[in-house]
Write a protein that binds this DNA or RNA. Structure first.
Lengths: 181, 181
DNA sequence: TGACCCATGTAAGGGGTTACATGATTTG
DNA sequence: CAAATCATGTAACCCCTTACATGGGTCA
């Protein structure tokens, strides 16, 4: 599982608390790796026990105390090993496609409505990703060079969402056409 | 979770054994919903206990006995309810993207090699899907009408894989270009 | 003879979700 | 005044994966 390694990567970029990580998941990595806060905290505990992370308790005025985690040398080594190890192709488990596959057992209207809902989320995701892309493209060349690999993951998101929407067009026009005259 | 409902759909199409279902997962539904045989058997047990399936023991000569499952009226009702209930957008957890995101902690060669491996699987998947599409397109019109919804899921697979490969081209050319002169 | 197909399971463990729990401060 | 943000966790549960287990038939 790569939640462990996603956390290692985020903390290599910059040390932070569980809450920090949770926020970073929501903005950057979250587009291709989900994590609830509960799981992040749990994983931080495990990674500390494994010796891949260490933390420092910081007391703050006007804010709750927090633990700031950073990657140890053992953690760094683990990350590098993982990066060199081939990973399995992703399995896709897509509920919407299961629904469509069995769509003949319900009214087309339900399917159309469902597609509409999903299209809405994909459209907003795409525009968010495009906005991020714009800020990247406006960076000076050296900054762009630094973020070129994360940028490739962003491109995956954009191309993926565009493909999804192109497919949705096919689906909608198919659903608009009655089966047989 | 929709493994339950995937099984209901497959068994509505045609009753069968756990082993049958496992095979059908590998060929049709498997492109967007994975299932190991262990889980299929487990789920069949649960669905029977819930009263959504019933089964009949069939003894065969020259072959092990098998249980042939079919959907009950309660199961049919459940499926219809599920089809009408909105489902959440899919979460994507993509290990390869995590790797790429943290790629600056390893050599570009590792990334290139990883991309090559993944490209291979996506290429074969795409050609398989295209082959299935061809057989669909060669069906008589009434048969095409019958399978039009599963066909849409196939289209999702094809557009998805094409998009993945287009992205892989971007990645490869980016990785071939050295960061800064 | 070794691999693959048919056919069905149990058991342990890992990973993720949902619910529950607390409590101060800031913003609309 | 309500909602969101900061901050951290526990516990129950569900789903999935991996490993283990069995055993006959077919095909190269």
């Amino acid at each position: 599982m790569s939640l462990k390694h996603a956390i290692l990567i985020l903390l290599e970029n910059e040390p932070g608390s569980g809450y920090d990580l949770f926020k970073r998941f929501k903005t950057s990595l979250g587009y291709f790796w989900n994590a609830k806060h509960q799981q992040v905290y749990l994983e931080l505990k495990k990674l500390s026990e494994a010796g891949w992370l260490e933390f420092e308790q910081q007391s703050q005025d006007e804010r709750p105390d927090k633990k700031v985690y950073r990657v140890t040398t053992a953690g760094h080594r683990e990350l590098q090993d993982w990066l060199k190890t081939p990973c399995k192709p992703n399995k896709i488990n897509d509920t919407l496609l299961v629904k469509l596959f069995g769509g003949r057992f319900t009214e087309p209207e339900s399917l159309v409505a469902e597609m509409k809902r999903h299209r809405a989320t994909h459209t907003t995701t795409l525009s968010q990703l495009r906005a991020i892309e714009q800020t990247y493209l406006n960076l000076p060349a050296d900054q762009q060079a630094h973020y070129r690999l994360p940028y490739l993951t962003l491109r995956r998101g954009i191309l993926g969402e565009e493909a999804w929407l192109a497919w949705a067009d096919e689906v909608d026009s198919a659903l608009a056409t009655p089966p047989l005259p």
